[in-house]
Design a protein around this nucleic acid. Structure first.
Length: 210
DNA sequence: ACATTAAGTGATT
DNA sequence: AATCACTTAATGT
């Protein structure tokens, strides 16, 4: 595991910290679609993403999903940080977007290392910062962007985290993630195709220029 | 050949 | 932008 750590986080953390992570961290490999965290779960460990991508969803009172953002390599879940401070339950749902490898770190280590390692402090602050930024973006998108722009952003993000300009997804699933109806997605996708931005196929969509 | 699931379309609110 | 009702197309058994 130490090799994987060095490879992905070596440039971020000093050797001492890497050794500590190696000692208490647990490697976890999950397949695509695996539910890492459900709403209401207690958070006991914090994930460091080695590879793959995680989809973070918020759920409303009716049980309808809405995608917030994707996590990628080098990211951690800001929600976990939130929870370790206040022992709170998760407000979000996390699902593996692709097959993924994570290192799970016990929550109590987070604050312990905060005082001990400068690099850890930086890392936590930085990921918190970028997550807040991302959330602001999400709010902006929902409040001000038309659905077709949200859709395009969603497709681009999805293409990015999958490292593939061909996205394997149905219109119905997109509709769920964006919290709209399948018919609307189909029509907007059709529009985007006519604009030459994407290519539609059954069960997959190709992004033409990223 | 038939059933099932995905996608396209017009009309209505 | 959402929903309904319906059609067409693709895919699995």
């Amino acid at each position: 595991m130490i090799e994987k750590l060095k490879l992905n986080y070596g440039y971020l953390f000093e050797d001492e910290l890497l050794k500590e992570i190696n000692k208490v961290g647990i490697i976890k490999e999950v397949p695509k679609g695996y539910k890492l965290l459900e709403i209401g779960d207690y958070v006991t460990s914090m994930p460091l993403l080695i590879n793959g991508a995680i989809k973070i969803l918020r759920q409303d009172a009716n049980g309808d999903d809405l995608i917030l953002y994707f996590l990628e390599r080098g990211d951690t879940c800001a929600m976990t940080l939130e929870c370790c401070m206040g022992q709170a339950k998760s407000e979000i749902r996390a699902i593996a977007e692709t097959d993924a490898q994570l290192i799970m770190i016990p929550v109590k280590k987070i604050s312990e290392w905060l005082g001990k390692y400068k690099s850890w402090q930086n890392f936590i602050l930085k990921s918190y910062h970028s997550r807040v930024q991302e959330l602001l973006e999400v709010i902006e998108n929902i409040a001000f962007l038309q659905l077709d722009e949200r859709l395009l952003k969603f497709l681009r993000d999805k293409a990015m985290v999958n490292n593939n300009d061909i996205i394997q997804v149905t219109h119905l699933k997109i509709a769920h993630d964006l919290h709209t109806s399948r018919v609307v997605v189909s029509r907007l996708l059709k529009k985007l195709e006519n604009q030459g931005k994407i290519k539609l196929n059954r069960n997959s969509i190709q992004i033409l220029h990223l």
